[in-house]
């Protein structure tokens, strides 16, 4: 009895002073801002979009009536939706294949020792640090119908103009024709996702132990044999991560299409799901159909993410 009584007065003042040391209190306190942020800015809109997509809400009539999958079938019946779905898949696939090839080459080059390596690495990462809207506005100028510097370059090396590969006109009119407009969108996506992929692959390359490369050298493997049998297999898990990022960014992006082509030309040839959802739901006022379009690929995308992460983990334990 007497011993605890003697301890108590000393212990009491320490309670407020040491609450910061108690994980049970400090943990939740420090997590709170993140939880609030996710719930308010990610969770709430997502739940709202899901609710909208199963209703018939419009800007004009905001009462939410449960209609099941009717909005989805309505959205899918629209030919533009199907075009947007095809474009989304195609743009993502093509841009990520290009990114994988270029990213691997760039990473290989950058992993070598040469003067000015740091500067080049920094420059390559720059597109990643530019806000995407600003980057796309820059591209608007690069792809301009009259003043495009890319056209000027093509003319200079003799690929554009009368009697050349790309035809008689003085300009490619990148954004004025459906096929070149689609190429332009893919191009900007490549420009946008390549830096991160390169940096991720570079990190993966650097993580391959020097001993393995030495062993391969001693074993008599030349550059391409080492590339195909050692580097690429060892790099696969990290490639999965790089591609996962690229897929998610490209899939969900509406800024590039919205600013570059507004879905055209003439209408809808470069439309993707994200931009179509915006045009339909916000500019067209059909909130329910816009929401249904936006969440349409949510399960597929979540599946892709889960698959990629699983692949990465499995390769890691190998």
């Amino acid at each position: 009895m007497s011993a605890p009584a003697a301890v108590q007065p000393a212990a009491r003042p320490s309670v407020p002073r040491y609450w910061m040391d108690r994980e049970g209190i400090l943990g939740p306190v420090m997590l709170l801002p993140v939880v609030v942020y996710i719930v308010a800015l990610v969770g709430f809109p997502l739940v709202l979009a899901l609710i909208y997509s199963f209703s018939d809400v419009t800007v004009g009539d905001q009462t939410i009536n449960w209609v099941g999958f009717e909005t989805f079938s309505q959205a899918m019946a629209n030919p533009t939706f199907r075009l947007a779905l095809r474009n989304t898949l195609l743009f993502t696939l093509i841009s990520q294949i290009v990114v994988l090839v270029l990213g691997n080459i760039l990473a290989l080059v950058l992993s070598a020792d040469f003067p000015g390596k740091r500067l080049v690495r920094f420059l390559i990462l720059l597109p990643w640090t530019t806000p995407i809207a600003l980057g796309v506005i820059g591209w608007l100028w690069l792809l301009d119908g009259l003043y495009s510097p890319i056209d000027a370059l093509l003319r200079m090396i003799g690929l554009l103009g009368p009697d050349t590969l790309f035809g008689p006109g003085r300009n490619m009119l990148w954004l004025a024709q459906p096929d070149t407009a689609q190429i332009s969108v893919v191009l900007v996506h490549v420009w946008r996702t390549l830096p991160l992929a390169t940096v991720i692959l570079l990190a993966g390359l650097t993580a391959i132990p020097q001993d393995l490369r030495d062993a391969a050298n001693v074993d008599g493997a030349g550059f391409f044999r080492q590339l195909v049998y050692i580097r690429i297999p060892l790099l696969l898990p990290i490639m999965a991560v790089a591609v996962l990022y690229g897929i998610v960014f490209t899939f969900t992006d509406m800024t590039v299409v919205y600013l570059l082509t507004r879905g055209g030309p003439p209408v809808d040839s470069t439309q993707v799901l994200a931009s179509w959802a915006y045009f339909k739901g916000i500019e067209g006022g059909n909130l329910a159909e816009g929401a249904a379009t936006a969440v349409f690929l949510f399960p597929a995308l979540a599946g892709v993410a889960a698959l990629m992460l699983r692949m990465a983990r499995r390769a890691e334990t190998n």
Binding site: P209, D211, L212, D214, A215, A216, V218, D219, G220
Partner: peptide, 29 residues
Amino acid sequence: PPRARKIAMVFQSYALYPHMTVYNNIAFP
């Protein structure tokens, strides 16, 4: 270069190729 010297090296870490089977490791040279 190393491969022209007809040498074989065993490293402290062994430097086995982690993604290959034992057979393929030995067959690699």
